[in-house]
Simulated assay, not measured.
Amino acid sequence: MQNYPDKFTEESKLEIEALLEHCLDGLGESSEKFLATLFIRAIRKHIGPTTIDEHIYLKRYEVPQIELFNVLIQQFPFVRYSHSIVNQTIADIVQGESTVTILDIGIGQGIQIVNLLERLKRVSGLRKVVVIGVEPFEDALNYAGELINSINYPYNVEFIPVCSFIEAIDFAEIGNMVEAAGGPLIVNESLALHHIQHLNDRHKVIQSVRALNPKAFFLTEPNVDHFEPDFFRRFQNCYNHFYHIFQVIDQLPVGVKEKNGLKLFFGREIEDVIGGSDHERFEKHEPSFRWVEKLTVGGFKMVNGFKGVPDDMGYGIKVDYDAFNGCLGFRFKTETIISLIHAECI
């Protein structure tokens, strides 16, 4: 990868071809072979096509998207526990409130917010919850609305869909929605802000959220530097990150097809991180300390107030609060895979 992008010789291309052939032999039984195959697939546009079509070998592990989402939500510990911890913490914060407004940035199909609304059933005296869901993909947003409205709650629920990228929305309009809704504002984002392409826009969004004066702002983000402009360092970061994720996937109580289906799912992120040019890339993750820096500059302070943190997540994952960086990290071996940040206005 140190030869990227202009120094791939014919000899190095043959070496990559040989590596691919080696990896495809026993692909389904070896995480490292599967991972290497996904990386080779990601860089094929730069090295030229190989004579082997790896897609033929990978196709048998394709799993319908809805099944993968079910595995991710129910079995994948980084998603399952991050949702649970944030939701429990929000429920604790709003105890005693009669009205609550939740701005959910990147609401997706509404899985986390529905679980939160379920948990809020145990908040005594709660009469109304207003959910402002921001999501750029209309199909997902419609699904979230249908899911929210299909459930009976002991309080009134109002869902306000906003179909837009977060950096493109009119925050003055969001402010009017929040003011009309009443009650304290909780802002939650899960795996969304790293899609903002430019650093200036990331700062602007955080400052715009601060202007709404939320009672709490929660961020859930992968703890890895894929914003790194140097390809070789970004490649190393990406390989190390997904190497550890794949080792956790190997321990899940699901079948081989589902495990490798999840790996294929993450293969799309790998393809984005190292397969595309800088202006094409969408998955521009940043390490947690950089999000904390942006929050601090934007007028927030970090809080160690997480509730419902399990004593043992299983799978060899350790959960600990990093007081220096102000975040709760989910660590597997030497890699902190994902971080949760709880911020309050200064």
Score class of each variant (00 low, 15 high):
3 N>F: 12
10 E>N: 12
12 S>C: 03
12 S>K: 10
14 L>G: 11
14 L>E: 14
16 I>N: 01
21 E>G: 07
22 H>S: 14
24 L>A: 10
26 G>E: 08
36 A>N: 03
37 T>C: 00
43 I>K: 02
43 I>H: 09
57 Y>H: 11
59 K>A: 15
67 E>N: 06
72 L>C: 03
73 I>M: 04
73 I>P: 00
74 Q>F: 10
77 P>R: 04
78 F>Y: 15
80 R>S: 10
88 Q>G: 05
91 A>F: 07
93 I>D: 12
97 E>T: 03
100 V>D: 03
104 D>C: 13
104 D>V: 01
108 G>F: 02
112 Q>N: 09
113 I>E: 03
114 V>W: 01
118 E>W: 09
119 R>A: 09
122 R>A: 15
127 R>A: 11
129 V>Y: 01
137 F>Q: 15
138 E>D: 05
139 D>T: 13
145 G>P: 00
148 I>D: 01
154 P>I: 14
154 P>A: 14
154 P>N: 14
163 C>K: 05
168 A>N: 15
170 D>R: 11
172 A>E: 14
174 I>F: 08
175 G>K: 10
175 G>E: 13
178 V>H: 03
178 V>C: 06
181 A>H: 00
183 G>H: 09
186 I>K: 06
201 D>T: 14
202 R>F: 07
205 V>W: 09
208 S>I: 09
209 V>T: 12
220 T>C: 04
230 D>N: 08
231 F>Q: 01
232 F>Y: 11
236 Q>M: 12
238 C>N: 15
242 F>L: 07
243 Y>V: 06
244 H>C: 03
249 I>A: 05
258 E>S: 12
259 K>P: 12
264 L>Q: 06
264 L>C: 11
265 F>P: 04
267 G>C: 13
269 E>L: 09
270 I>P: 00
276 G>I: 04
276 G>K: 11
280 E>C: 03
295 L>N: 04
295 L>W: 05
296 T>A: 07
298 G>M: 04
302 M>I: 13
306 F>T: 07
310 P>D: 13
311 D>R: 13
311 D>Y: 14
312 D>M: 02
312 D>A: 02
317 I>T: 00
317 I>F: 10
323 A>G: 06
329 G>H: 06
333 K>V: 12
335 E>G: 05
